[in-house]
């Protein structure tokens, strides 16, 4: 039988601080179908970001089973994980995580650079991507510190989109924004989901989670409950 797009079974992530074990994720199992829009919600320190890093192939769980599109991620090499992140996954962070000394366009280009695309192709795609998230063309050459928070997050989304990924992970993407630009960003996400991309949004605000189809509640590294949102 074909496995679900994302399948995680009894995932644990344990940090070791000297002798002391700090379990951040304590046996999480979940399935996500292609094209779903999921929100992961929970109090601070509950393990949302840790879970997102694992699902996003940035980190491997200490134990458990994790398949992404039928590929056993626990068995994948570091290079393979990098390739998956580059090709299939896009990240958007609360603090934008843009490269400070590069222009908006150069920032967006970066994943394309690691994909080995030519300069011409990179620029073409970066421009397309930036226009798609609604950044004005005159700002393409601006450095991050010359952009507003909302504009920065648009650049970050454009960067996440440039290699046309299947899944986008967003860790509190509106956390550093005011309500208005936050809403604009969330609308972009909604639009991306409509185009068929799987979206996993981490937040601790109920109101943000409301944009998703399904909300997964996390508490102390465990899934507390799940709820479906009627659109």
């Amino acid at each position: 039988m074909k496995k679900p797009f994302i399948q995680a079974n009894d995932i644990w992530k344990i940090y070791y601080m000297g002798e002391v074990e700090v379990p951040a994720i304590r046996g999480i199992s979940l399935e996500i179908k292609k094209g779903e829009f999921i929100a992961i919600i929970g109090p601070s320190g509950s393990g949302k970001s840790t879970l997102m890093h694992i699902l996003g192939c940035l980190d491997k769980p200490t134990k458990g089973i994790f398949y992404l599109d039928e590929e056993d991620i626990l068995k994948a090499s570091e290079n393979r994980l990098a390739a998956i992140r580059n090709d299939r996954i896009g990240f958007v962070f609360q603090q934008f995580n843009l490269l400070a000394r590069r222009s908006a366009l150069e920032n967006v280009e970066t994943p394309c650079l690691y994909a080995g695309k030519s300069r011409k192709e990179r620029i073409r795609r970066a421009r397309e991507s930036l226009l798609k998230v609604g950044l004005e063309e005159k700002r393409f050459s601006h450095h991050p510190n010359q952009l507003s928070g909302g504009q920065r997050q648009r650049v970050a989304i454009a960067r996440a989109l440039i290699n046309d990924p299947d899944i986008i992970f967003a860790d509190e993407p509106t956390g550093a924004l005011d309500t208005r630009s936050g809403d604009e960003i969330l609308e972009i996400f909604q639009q991306l989901n409509k185009e068929g991309r799987t979206l996993i949004l981490v937040t601790h605000e109920r109101y943000v989670a409301q944009y998703a189809e399904r909300i997964i509640h996390i508490k102390d590294g465990r899934i507390d409950s799940e709820e479906l949102i009627a659109q």
């Binding site: 996003g56 940035l58 570091e78 290079n79 990098a82 390739a83 992140r85 580059n86 090709d87 990240f91 995580n97 843009l98 490269l99 970066t110 994943p111 690691y114 994909a115 960067r159 290699n163």
Partner: peptide, 10 residues
């Protein structure tokens, strides 16, 4: 870290 998240290999 950012570059690695974006797919840079070692």
């Amino acid at each position: 870290g950012i570059r690695k998240a974006l797919g840079a290999k070692r």
